[in-house]
Structure formats: C-alpha cells, structure tokens
Design a binder for these strands. Structure first.
Length: 484
RNA sequence: GGCGCUAUCGUCUAACGGUUAGGACGGAGCCCUCUCAAGGCUUAAAUACGGGUUCGAUUCCCGUUAGCGCUACCA
C-alpha cells in the first residue's frame, strides 16, 4: 500500500476527576485533526493511577464525551494493557537504558508537611549509588525481594541534547543533563504515566500526539523512551496552550469548583455544537475572522499552525459560571441550526421539566420557530417558554400593569370572543381582528398588543404579540383572554 | 531554586518588517420597532518594560518583569 501513512491520534484522559473544559478542547482538536486527515481517533483511558482513579470520574468522562457527540473510532484502557507496559519497560532495562533504584520512596514535594517553606527545592537528578549498581548486585537484591523502581538511565556528562519539533511551539531542545532519571515502573510493578503512555502510543501506532502544553517538558522524556523502545520513529508532537481561569491559574476542581466541568455547560442548556465551536476559538483561530462555524467548516479550517502559543483565559465568576462569548455563540447557534436539529434537544429539555409530553412534532417545531430568535439557551424553552406548553406559569407584576390599563381587560375579553368565532387563527387573521377591534373602539392598538402578550404569557417581553398567539395555541390563547 | 514555554483592547483573537494596529464578545450611544431580542450604524478600549538589528519594528535578537508548566514510585 502506497501513499501517506494513516494518521492515528488519541485522546487519553485519566479518570481522576470529571472531564474538564481543557480536556474537552484537547479531545475536540484531536478529533478535528483526525477527521481532516481521514485518520483514526482513539479514546484511551489512562488509568494507571489506581489510587486516584474512580468509577464516577470515568463515568463523567463518558458523559461529557457523549454529550459532545463527536465519537471515536477505537477505544482502549491502559489497565488492560499492563503486561505490554511491563514487557517494554524490561526491554529497556535489558538494553541497560534503565536501572533498578532501591531507594525507599519519599513523600511528594507538594506535601505541605514535607515541603519546608524556607528550604528551596534542589533540582534532583538521581539517587546516589543506584545508577552504578552492577547487574549482578541489582539482580541479587531484586531476587531477595527488595522493592525498587525502574528508572531511565538518562545520558549524563556527554553533552547530549534532546530535540524534537513541536507542531505548535516549533523546534524544542533540552540538555539531557537537565533531565532527571525518571521512573518507568513503580515499586508496585505498575507502569508510570510516562512508560504506559509511550508504550501504548508506540504499540497503537499513534502518529500524532496532540495534548496540553503541560506535557511540553515531559516530551523530552518521551523522546528518550521512544528512542529506547526502538520501534520506529517517534510520533509527531503538538502541544496546545492551556485554558486558564480568570485569576490566571490552571483550571482545577479544587480551586475553581464545578465551573471547569463540561457538564456545567450541558446543564446550562448549551447546544453541544455551540460549545464545541466556543472551545475551538480558545487557543485556535481560522485567521479569517470567522467565528460561528459548522462542524464541517471547523474540520476544513483546522490546522496546527492556526493554534496559538499563549494560554487562553476562560471567563467565569461565582455568580455566573458561563463565559459571555459562549453564551453569545449558543444564542447564535440556536437561531441558525435547523428546526429538525433543534427539536429533539428542546423536547428533551421540556421533558426534563415535565412539559409538552403530548406536544405534536409539527406544533413543537412551529413554537420553537417563534421562540428561538430571542432565547439564549435550551433552558429558556422551559423557563420563559413555559407559557406555551403549560398553564402554570408565573405572571410578572409588569404584565399585570399592562392589563390594568383602562379598558384593556374588557377589550381583551371581547377579542377572545371574536377569535373564537374566527376559523383561521393565523398571525395575519389575529392581527386583523385585533387592529379592527382597536379601530372600532377608538383605542390605540398598543393597548391590545401589549395586553395580549401580558395576558397570554404573563410577560411584557417576548416575540411579536401576533406570533405569541400561534406559539401559545388557539385553545390556550382564547381561554386566557376570556378569564383575563 | 533549576529547566522549559508565553506576553496585542477587560476577554477571545488578526496583522508571517511598512496597516489610521483589524474582527468578535462584553460596555456605551443611535436607528429600526407592538415589547424584548435580533439586525444595522457609531463609539470607548491594546502592542508589558528597556536595549539593540533595520531606512522602518506588534513582528527579528538580547535583557528585565510578569504569568504558566515541568522538576513525584500523579497524569
């Protein structure tokens, strides 16, 4: 088979928290890249940290991904591939590119108890005495059951420079002397992230690694591992700028709460595509001022060279967790997607509020058509739109005022009677009846127009008063006018 | 501390040495109008700082500052 090799990319979340915004964007960029190049999108669950993995976060990752609705082509779990990781780690050991380190584990430097505030951290390279251990000595201690971690033997004192070309950040270089002897296998025998990740990337034939910039410095280690594996050329790397909070810090559940979860946007009534569109505009630009784009347009426009190098702030506050631009994009999308696409989502939203279970599809679509031009989220259909699907809706004080205008109630009741006798009940016919009545009685049409909206919806703001009649429906409209 | 990365309006971004530094969100104002949105128009708002290189720097180089990341038997 000739031609360029099939592109294979992966999204590799670890189930140690819910799917957060930055991860979602990484997934999307990988997906876009795969689709653009007719490649394969792989979902790989990086669950090698048995202490921190939870089923709940695994579930929330699937929930978030399923909501986005982009899908994937292949699926793996690292916990099912541990034999491969170990085998490849020992292959590196056999090449003498790794060694056993019998030094007992020490606490994490993040541990506030251990990390003395006044003792600046030294750059650590390796534990004394372990690199030089003879193979015989090493084997003997291992056979005796002494615990050890397997560490990569980073080349030292030979002036070696590790290099790779990043698809976003350009040529990267780092002195091997600045890289510590990182672990491949823990004393439990389980692989570390670095080992498992590279082993799988090599085994799964990943051609392009697109991930967060927090891995940029790790990549030098990965280059070393791929080199030691000796299984062909390393994948190409591309790192994405991070999404950060308004305070400039990396998004974290602990510090910023649930606003960093994609489910916040789902639950706020976002359309999946609008959210995808929003995320795409963070750290990437099509360079032509386009913002609202369809899925296909995003695929066509996506390039690594369009990716930025500086972190992007996502706006949220305690009072309002939603980025204003995301909200704008959602309202735009709400107005432009086809009704056929929108209807199922609206029906779902209404169902969740116990509404419109019996609503015929044609009527639902007609109502959506009228309402959507001034809504921002799906939730609005069950909120401000409730009066179109139920009779128990709140009536605003300002709406009462509109009805308290002299003659308003009496005229509305009369209008109700006339509409009842009108077989048409279209926007045009309602307008004709309403204006006719107003002229007849010598009042301004506005009294009936604003009164209608108030009587029919309990609100003073909303669609054209005539359209409101259609949205509310003949039966409900006449009933509401009668008892006004 | 060491190493790496980054730096354009409040925010997201455009300008691959020459522009009145452009667009979008949000803000302000006007128009439209049966209300509210939408839409149209207008407006305020940015090249972190200091040195170079160059006829000319947002753009290239160096330094400073700031931010972020890595520096775990986390990922």
């Amino acid at each position: 088979m000739e031609g360029p090799p099939m592109m294979r990319v992966r999204f590799a979340p670890s189930p140690t928290g819910y799917l957060h915004i930055g991860s979602a964007r990484t997934f999307i960029f990988n997906w876009l890249f795969a689709r653009k190049h007719h490649g394969t999108m792989i979902l790989r669950i990086d669950d090698t940290d048995v202490d921190r993995n939870t089923d709940a976060s695994l579930q929330s990752i699937y929930d978030g991904l399923n909501w986005l609705g982009l899908g994937w082509d292949e699926h793996y779990r690292q916990s099912e591939r541990l034999d491969l990781h170990k085998r490849l780690a020992y292959a590196i050991f056999e090449k003498d590119l790794a060694y056993r380190d019998f030094t007992p584990a020490h606490a994490s430097p993040d541990d506030p108890v251990e990390a003395g505030a006044d003792t600046p951290k030294q750059s650590w390279q390796f534990n004394p005495g372990m690199r030089e251990l003879s193979r015989e000595e090493s084997d003997r201690r291992a056979a005796a059951g002494e615990p050890f971690v397997l560490r990569y033997r980073v080349p030292r004192g030979v002036g070696r420079t590790i290099r790779f070309a990043d698809g976003v950040y350009g040529p990267q270089a780092k002195e091997a002397d600045d890289i510590e002897d990182f672990a491949l296998l823990r004393s439990s025998g389980l692989p570390t992230y670095h080992m498992a990740s590279c082993a799988d990337d090599a085994d799964l034939g990943i051609t392009n690694i697109i991930r967060g910039q927090d891995h940029l410095s790790n990549t030098f280690k990965h280059v070393l591992i791929f080199e030691a594996l000796g299984s062909g050329p390393a994948p190409e790397f591309a790192h994405l700028p991070l999404l950060i909070a308004p305070d400039g810090a990396k998004l974290s559940k602990r510090k910023h709460g649930p606003v960093v979860s994609v489910t916040t946007y789902r639950d706020a009534g976002f359309l999946p595509h609008a959210y995808i569109n929003f995320l795409c505009l963070l750290g990437w630009s099509p360079k032509n001022d386009r913002e609202q784009m369809t899925r296909q347009e995003l695929i066509d426009a996506f390039t690594l060279s369009g990716v930025n190098r500086s972190n992007a702030v996502i706006t949220f506050t305690d009072a309002d967790p939603i980025d204003p631009k995301a909200l704008w994009l959602n309202s735009q999308t709400l107005r432009t997607v086809t009704t056929a696409e929108l209807a199922p989502l609206v029906r779902q939203t209404l169902a969740a509020a116990g509404l419109a279970a019996q609503e015929p599809p044609e009527r639902l679509e007609q109502t959506i058509e009228i309402l959507r031009s001034r809504f921002a989220t799906l939730l609005d259909f069950a909120g401000r739109g409730r009066c179109c699907f139920a009779d128990d809706y709140p009536v605003a004080p300002e709406a009462e005022e509109k009805l308290n205008v002299p003659q308003a109630r009496e005229l509305l009741r009369e209008l109700g009677a006339r509409l009842e006798a009108d077989p048409d009940f279209t926007e045009a016919s309602v307008e004709k009846q309403l204006r006719g009545l107003a002229t007849e009685r010598g009042v301004k049409a506005g009294v009936l127009i604003n009164g209608s909206r108030a009587a029919l919806t309990g609100q003073t703001a909303g669609p054209s008063a005539f359209a409101v009649y259609i949205a509310v429906g003949r039966e409900r409209a006449i009933q509401r006018l009668k008892k006004v």
